[in-house]
Every structure is written in C-alpha cells, then in structure tokens.
Design a protein around this nucleic acid. Structure first.
Length: 621
RNA sequence: CGGGGCGUAGCUCAGCUUGGUAGAGCGCUCGGUUUGGGACCGAGAGGUCGCAGGUUCGAAUCCUGUCGCCCCGACCA
C-alpha cells in the first residue's frame, strides 16, 4: 500500500467492510428474526411466469418479486443473500487494494457522446430526458464516470496506480430479458477500474483483479473457466472472461485438454502451411448443373467428375463464398464476400467480432441485383473473363467487392468453387496462383476437434454463463476524456485503464440454479440468508420456549438465526417452508424437548441428528 | 424484430366452442377443533373478466383494434 502522508485525496483508505451500516453477520443487537412478523410470503405453487429453476424458486420462496420484464424487487431474504455475496466481493476487492465508491445510475449524455458510446450502444441503452429536455441515461457501465472522477482529482503519476470499484445497479435494455435474474435489464454489478501510467502497471493491476476474481469465485464455490475474450470491439488489448460452465449458458467457448480456452469469438484458426504450386494441375471449368448447395455440388462432383486419386470429394474440398452485408454505426453499408471451406458455415458472432463495429447480415436480393457479377449459387473469385473478387491493382476485379478468406485457404491449396457462370464450377482452383484475396477473416464456425492455436490439441465446445470479465481498456477512455498525468519527467502522459466486472445478481441466480432440490433451495453456508433456521413445532409452550432459548443462544454465539415461531401453523407447513427457503441448517424443536433434545436437520443431506439443547451451540461449531 | 402461447380474486387455474346475474382450489379474516410433513368444520372479505370500440335486448364468452406478459429464435456483459 502507498504511503499516506500529508492528507489529500490519495489518502482515502479502503474501508474494512462494506458501505452498508448493517448487513448479515453484523451483531448490533441480539433481536431474533421471527418468522411470525418477518416480511415473507411463500407461494405454494410455482409462479406461472417463471421457467428456470432459480427464478421459480427465488420467487416462490419469497426472495424476489418481478416488477417489470427483467426488473426485480428484493425482499428481505433476497437482500440478505445478495449482501452476503457482495461482502465476499468487497473483502477481496479491498484486499486487492481497490477503493469503494458509488456512482449514480443516472448519468448525463455528454461523456458518453464523447466516447462514442451514446451511439454505439444502440437500443441497449436506457435513455431518458429530464424536464429541460436534456438527454440522460441509465448507466450500462461506468467507464466514463470513473475516468472523469479521476481526472477531476488526480494529475500526478505519484497518485497512481489506483483501483476503484463500486457495487451498483446497471441498466441495459435487453432485447429479450429472460430467465429471471440470469438476464435482467436491471442487475447488480461490481465494476472496478484501474488507472496506471505505464503498460507494465496496467498488467499488474489487471493481474491483481484477476487474482481477486479467482479468490471470489472459489469462495463462492462457483466453478469457472477463464477464457480469452474478444477485445477488438472495445479497442482494448487484452480481455478474459470468467465463464461458469453450464448448458444454460449463453456463451459458447472452446477448450483443449492442453489448457487453451477461449470464447468462440476470440478463437483463432491454426492455419496450415502454404504449399508449393509445383505439380498442381491447371484449373478446369466443368458443368455442374443444379448444384446451388454444397451437398448437391459434392454429389455431382463425385458422380460426374471423380477425383483422379480415387478418393471421394467432400465438402471440405469446396470453397464456399458467402456474401455478407456490413452495416456500420454511421449508417453505411458494405458488401463483402467471405470464402471458406464448404464444410463450415459462417458464424455470425465471429463475423461480427471480426468486422466490429459493423453489424453483419446476409446479403439480400437487392444486393444480388446490384451486383450481377455474383451468380447466386455459383459465386467464386475467378471467372474465365478475369477476376471477379479479390484482385490486385494490376488486375482489378469485375465486382470490386472486398474478398476475405478463411485462414485455412492458404496459398497453394486447391478448391472446387463457383465459376460465376450458372451451372458451372471450376475445379482445382489454386489460392495464390489462380486467385488472390484482400485478406483473411475469422468468420467460420469453430467445430469440435479443431486444433487449438497454441498447439495444445483439439478443442471441445462447451456452453458457459459469463460471471466475470477482466479487460485491459488501454488508453481509449482516458484519451477521449483527457485523463492525463505528469510523469517522472514532467511530461503529460495519458493514463491506461482496465475495467473489471462481476455480475452479482447473476451469480446469486447461478448459485440458486446449482443448489436446490424438488423441495426448494439449498444455500451454501457462505451465502445463505441465515446460518440456522429454528423451527418450533406443535403448540406446547415448553417447546416454543426451548426453541427460543436455542435461537437466542445461537444468536449470542454469532449465528444469524431465523426463528419460525408462528403459532397455529402445522409442522408440515413449517417444514415445507424451511425446505423452500433453504437455510442449510434447520433445528427442529418438538416432542424431544421433554427430554431436553432437539434435532439438527441438514437441509442438503436430509440427515436429522438429535442433540441435547445444552449442546446445540457447540454442535454447530 | 420473426415464430408460438397467455391475459378471469393475492397465487394456480376453470368458465369462452354453443352469449343469459362471475367460479374452484390454495392464500387471507373471524370462531372452533387439530398439531412431527402443506389437517378440518362453520362464517366472511376479495374480481369494472388487460384496455378501447363494435355486434346484441343482453358480452368474460362473438367481431375489430390495441396494450401487456411468458416461451423459442435473432440480438446481447
């Protein structure tokens, strides 16, 4: 930690605990939480609008209530779990040397205008006007706000490095919110930002956050995979996502046994070596009627134009040329043609990552009408009359459309591809000899078994849910907003930044998703709303007194206790509610009380153990 | 944005085809019985049937429009 001498803003200390005055675990007094007057209503039936398990159970057990699509109110039980998760995050952020702050969700347009995000965010941004007609927004993240805050207060390299964080609600107007808390329009996020004046410093800050994330997810008991992420769109240099592997995840990632892991958008193709043209036969145009699809082309080729070596043609021997339309943020539209092996489709997400910030859509009928040189179903870079796509200065192509190749289409590789003549393909067309391209592009889908780019073996595909993201932003925001400091030599240098996010409410939902059975939730001890749920059964006053004694003793021993003291509620209802709510340890006071005994019920295993009342505190450690 | 489904009591739903004074279970209130797995009896409170037009003597029900919600896809940290 830096020296803190003569006061000033640099000396703000991270707080040991959170900003909230009180949370679970803080022993301000020993008032027992009684279910008889707790704000809770459990539902006997599943809510009809909840599909996924976490959503269903969190609503049914009285943790959250829906307010609008993707927007939820937090009830006392839900708040307690949320605060437990936040506490773990706060502890690790503070350990990593980050200082907690808190920004408003409501922000002015101007800084977002300057960084370009007012436009780039598109419909995903919640925009509103104040009474004077000024544009405001509900922040989707806070890069601009943090950058400007630091610019306001700091101007020397001596103030750096600096890491700030907040735990705060974010707003994104999702096209389709779904799955309860898993994809909401309002969600709680821990977002942190680091400020350095050297690249080495950024690396260090980034690593500190990354390490903290590993500790956080480990403490939360969440399995995670750190994958390379696509950094291009945000203009940054390095980016990794923490994905929780789960079939319901919305991200597809790849990993190899040798340790490579990447989001599919960030996967890079291991290209084969270029080959010599020597010994290759000249290209030949052959009739291939009615072969507008790859499969019909392969069948036709095998039937009518078999390979000289006896092997059958496959889709991988064909070069498929896909016409895409790129739509740029400024409204311009450009056609490109992507050439890729015929056994692969264009992956739209990968294409968009490659062509960012443009959006990608398939070419439409009008595009083909405007470019008669592209013969639908028979598109190729070459024609008898000269290049159609991807020529050089000496040999301009007839269409002038940008032509980009999959990295597998290396120089010296031969292909069957469209001859730009209806009903005809050209066989043995060799890249580098017979046609050229304007470059390569990572737009083809990734298939299981593809080699990892680092040579660590074939990859498998898996689904994951993003729970954290660490990102070296570099100087993009500092540059745009003018965040500079004086360095050791008295020169103004632009600050380099990182941003680091964790989805708090999404994590809560994933934990719920992972920890339940047919009767309800089963919280891990680290995040459970209470440590112990004491149930008094029956109507015998002695039982209620004994239960209260146990509850008070546990409170005094530092446990968070929920006491089901509801009178005139049958044991079946109380047991059902206890299971639904999911506190990991339940204590049942009932007929054993006469012998001085209660039962400790493990929610997860279902095991019930009789324990003397006097030994309950000790038994629970 | 495309496809599908649904809007009736706090919750889950029936009634709509074939128009005739708005229902059930659960929950809630009161009284009583019951109390180790969502017990029961009796008495209650609670709904302009999403909204707006139209047809009709009469509309939850038929017609038109509209709004909203959920699911799948597209999209998306």
């Amino acid at each position: 930690m830096r020296q803190c001498g003569g006061g000033g803003p640099a000396c703000a200390q991270p707080r040991a605990v959170g900003t909230r005055a009180r949370g679970p675990g803080d022993k301000v007094d020993a008032v027992i939480t009684r279910l008889s007057n707790y704000f809770l209503r459990t539902l006997r039936e599943d809510p009809s609008d909840a599909e996924v398990t976490s959503h269903r159970l969190l609503v049914r057990a009285g943790y959250i209530r829906r307010q609008a699509p993707g927007v939820f109110a937090w009830l006392p039980l839900g708040l307690r779990v949320k605060e437990k998760i936040e506490r773990i995050i706060r502890e690790e952020m503070n350990n990593a040397g980050a200082h907690e702050v808190h920004f408003p969700a409501l922000l002015p347009r101007e800084p977002f205008e300057i960084t370009g995000r007012w436009e780039e965010y598109g419909d995903g941004l919640f925009r509103l006007k104040d009474r004077k007609g000024s544009d405001m927004l509900l922040a989707p993240t806070h890069e601009e706000a943090f950058t400007l805050l630091v610019k306001d207060l700091y101007n020397s390299y001596k103030d750096l490095p600096l890491s700030l964080y907040q735990i705060q609600d974010k707003y994104r107007d999702e096209a389709r919110p779904r799955a309860g808390l898993l994809r909401g329009r309002e969600f709680t996020m821990k977002d942190a930002y680091s400020f350095d004046y050297t690249d080495a410093g950024l690396d260090k800050s980034y690593q500190a956050q990354r390490d903290a994330y590993e500790r956080i997810f480990t403490r939360l008991g969440l399995e995670y995979v750190i994958v390379k992420a696509d950094a291009g769109a945000m203009g940054g240099s390095k980016s990794e996502e923490f994905l929780h592997p789960t079939p319901i995840g919305e991200d597809t990632f790849v990993r190899s046994a040798g340790g490579y892991a990447a989001n599919v958008e960030a996967f890079t193709t291991l290209a084969p070596e270029p080959r010599s043209f020597e010994g290759l036969t000249p290209a030949e145009v052959l009739p291939t009627p009615d072969t507008a699809t790859i499969q019909t082309l392969v069948d036709s080729a095998n039937a009518n134009h078999p390979r000289p070596d006896g092997r059958l043609w496959t889709a991988a021997d064909t070069l498929k040329n896909v016409v895409l339309a790129l739509r740029y943020p400024d409204g311009t539209r450009e056609l490109v043609v992507v050439g890729l092996p015929g056994d692969r489709e264009v992956d739209q997400k990968r294409a968009e990552a490659a062509f960012a910030p443009a959006e990608v859509e398939p070419a439409n009928e009008d595009d083909f009408k405007a470019n008669p040189g592209l013969v639908k179903g028979y598109i190729g870079p070459w024609s008898a009359a000269g290049p159609v796509l991807g020529a050089d200065e000496e040999n301009p192509s007839s269409t002038g459309i940008r032509y980009l190749l999959d990295p597998r289409v290396v120089s010296g590789s031969g292909w069957i591809t469209g001859a730009n003549e209806h009903g005809h393909h050209v066989f043995g067309l060799v890249a580098g000899r017979d046609f050229t391209a304007d470059g390569t592009v990572e737009a083809a889908e990734v298939l299981a078994g593809d080699p990892a780019p680092d040579g660590s073996g074939p990859v498998e595909l898996a689904r994951g849910m993003e729970i954290g993201h660490v990102f070296q932003l570099g100087r993009k925001y500092a540059e745009a907003l003018g965040l500079k400091v004086l360095d050791e030599n008295g020169k103004l240098v632009t600050v380099t930044m990182g941003s680091y996010g964790i989805g708090v409410t999404r994590i809560l939902a994933i934990i719920a998703e992972l920890n339940n059975d047919e009767n309800g939730l089963i919280w891990p001890k680290t995040v459970a709303p209470f440590d112990v749920h004491v149930v008094a059964t029956g109507r015998d006053a002695a039982v209620f007194e004994a239960a209260e004694t146990v509850a008070a003793a546990l409170e005094a021993a530092g446990k968070d206790v929920l006491f089901d003291d509801r009178p005139k509620v049958s044991p079946g209802v109380k047991f059902g509610d206890a299971e639904l709510i999911g506190v990991p340890t339940i204590i049942i006071a009932g007929r054993g009380v006469a012998e001085g005994v209660v039962e400790i019920w493990d929610r997860r295993t279902g095991e019930r153990t009789p324990v003397a009342i006097s030994e309950v505190v000790e038994a629970l450690g």
